[in-house]
């Protein structure tokens, strides 16, 4: 399978009050097309930092990140922004959206901004509506972002991350702010996306969420200390409960 994302010897150091804080230490990582990778680990272990570094939202201190065959360190800010806009999608724990735009406008905003997008506004809007329909939130398109529920908003964020048909979607605790049922709905959407071929890299604290992923990485103190391959959720005959049990056992070993 093709490699979408590769990190070699990735290091990230923050300097706070003249003290170095080595948040990521020599991380090697390969994500193949179609993977659904979960990143787990204790709080402060560097999960979010890893996500930002491999997605080009932040610069690495050492090592290299190769996305889709390109060395991201060699790209300038503008080119990196373009890569993020056209080839990556983002979902955050907080459901960030622009409050001056309606939900639908927020979703189509990246498409309007993309230079690759040759559609008319109406076509883009149509596509946005179709995505909303697919995620079951077609009714709230013209609402303000503070007129919808958290779960709806997070699904709208997924729509936004998908609008430019990215190669990979990065999600940082996408279900962190949601209750169990909303969380399941959102995860199911991500799974559907993954089954359609989109690579997903997702930071989570929730073993139930991680159990649906094909690989789980365990990060402690800036290093990947273990990896568990669970295989694709749909393709395996194992039930979700079995996967969860298996993962929990493994997590115990890691010191979860």
């Amino acid at each position: 399978m093709n490699t979408v994302l590769q990190a070699k010897g990735l290091c990230k150091t923050y300097v706070v009050n003249k003290r170095q804080n080595n948040v990521l230490k020599n991380i090697d990582l390969t994500v193949s097309e179609g993977d659904m990778v979960a990143v787990m680990g204790p709080s402060g272990s560097g999960k979010s930092t890893l996500l930002y570094c491999v997605s080009g939202m932040d610069r690495v201190t050492a090592g290299e990140v190769i996305f889709n065959g390109k060395e991201t360190a060699s790209l300038n800010d503008k080119e990196l922004a373009r890569v993020r806009l056209d080839e990556m999608g983002f979902i955050f724990q907080q459901m960030y959206m622009m409050k001056n735009l309606s939900v639908l406008d927020n979703i189509i905003f990246p498409a309007v901004k993309s230079k690759n997008n040759k559609e008319t506004r109406a076509q883009t809007e149509e596509r946005g509506r179709a995505l909303m329909k697919r995620l079951g939130i077609e009714d709230v398109g013209s609402n303000d972002i503070n007129e919808v529920s958290g779960g709806q908003l997070q699904r709208a964020c997924i729509c936004r991350s998908m609008i430019n048909s990215p190669k990979i979607i990065f999600a940082d605790e996408p279900t962190g702010a949601l209750n169990r049922s909303s969380s399941d709905e959102v995860m199911n959407e991500l799974l559907k996306l993954n089954n359609d071929g989109t690579t997903v890299m997702c930071v989570t604290h929730d073993p139930k969420v991680a159990a649906k992923c094909s690989r789980v990485l365990y990060l402690v103190d800036g290093s990947i200390v273990g990896e568990k391959v669970l295989g694709h959720f749909d393709s395996e005959e194992k039930s979700l409960r079995d996967r969860e049990r298996e993962l929990n056992g493994w997590l115990m070993e890691q010191g979860w």
């Binding site: 373009r82 806009l85 905003f109």
Partner: peptide
């Protein structure tokens, strides 16, 4: 947010 989603 705009920067994260890739607006230059």
């Amino acid at each position: 947010l705009m920067k994260a989603v890739g607006i230059p």
